[in-house]
């Protein structure tokens, strides 16, 4: 049977690639600290020795559009091209190509449907920075096959937070029931408080540092019930108009399990938004 080698939840900051590769006068003052934190975070995945990565993210109106919008979608294809013209333009992100694992994707689709999630699928999916940012930060070799899973945190009506947690629990069960002897890391990215295109954007910190502090505590301690008791589709407007991306963190709390304390917790207060990084080892910390 497959083993969940690591569960990882992270913010996906599209500026990391440019900040970390900039030199001289172009290198921002926070870059060195940021790179050091990312390298420590990367080590938590490396030492889990994964064979396959299940990658949870959200398309930012690249391929998925309002004329045909899935709530949850699994990519099943031999390859996934990655990053888009407007991500090259705005963030300097490189074009990439990642291999897919169609066997695991098929297992997740068939058994996810049978478990009560009407998952959409795509056989030709170009993935965006919600998935390539964690490749760049956690596995820059980009040498492992992936199964991308997209969630809709972007185009209302959205599924409610509890549904994200339930999907996370189900993804964990589906990976653990896959009858193939592989080590699978489940990685998901979202946001803490975030404002995009509104009056609170691009401030000195994220738009709601108090929310960010609580969110890091919920995730780090596995406090699923506490988080669900305060977070609703309506409440997520308060910390910032793009904060519904936090529901992908809630999905990852579902993967990690209620009460599961993260084995690695780190954060970095940046302008515009706070970074946060979490790793769990469900089967014990690797040697």
């Amino acid at each position: 049977m497959a083993t969940v080698a690591a569960v990882i939840a992270s913010t996906h900051h599209p500026f990391y690639y440019r900040a970390s590769t900039a030199t001289g006068a172009d290198r921002p003052p926070f870059a060195d600290e940021w790179v050091a934190k990312i390298e420590a975070f990367r080590e938590t995945l490396t030492k889990a020795r994964p064979d396959i990565l299940v990658m949870v993210g959200s398309d930012h109106f690249h391929q998925l559009w309002l004329d045909n919008m899935p709530q949850f979608l699994v990519g099943k294809a031999p390859y996934f091209d990655a990053n888009w013209y407007n991500e090259e333009r705005e963030f300097g992100l490189p074009r990439m190509r990642l291999a897919g694992d169609e066997q695991l994707a098929s297992h997740i689709l068939r058994n996810g449907l049978d478990a009560g999630f009407d998952l959409a699928f795509s056989n030709e999916l170009r993935i965006d920075h919600s998935i390539t940012c964690p490749i760049i930060t956690l596995r820059p070799e980009a040498d492992l096959p992936i199964v991308p899973i997209y969630t809709n945190i972007f185009a209302p009506p959205l599924p409610r937070p509890g549904r994200f947690v339930e999907l996370g629990r189900t993804i964990r069960e589906l990976v653990e029931s896959w009858p193939i002897d592989k080590r699978v890391a489940i990685i998901g990215t979202g946001h803490l408080s975030l404002e995009l295109g509104g009056p609170r954007q691009f401030g000195e910190h994220g738009p709601d540092p108090e929310f960010d502090r609580k969110a890091v505590d919920w995730i780090a301690s596995g406090d699923v019930d506490g988080c669900l008791s305060e977070v609703t589709l309506d409440s997520l407007h308060q910390p910032g108009n793009a904060t519904h991306g936090f529901m992908d963190f809630m999905l990852m709390m579902g993967v990690a399990g209620a009460g599961a304390k993260a084995d690695h917790v780190d954060s970095l207060d940046l302008f515009h938004t706070m970074e946060a990084y979490f790793t769990w080892y469900p089967n014990g910390v690797p040697a």
């Binding site: 930012h60 109106f61 705005e90 972007f154 995009l196 295109g197 509104g198 954007q201 793009a242």
Partner: peptide, 12 residues
């Protein structure tokens, strides 16, 4: 209008 779409295009 979706604020992400407006922001992205106007930055461009």
């Amino acid at each position: 209008a979706h604020p992400f779409l407006t922001l992205t295009l106007f930055i461009a």
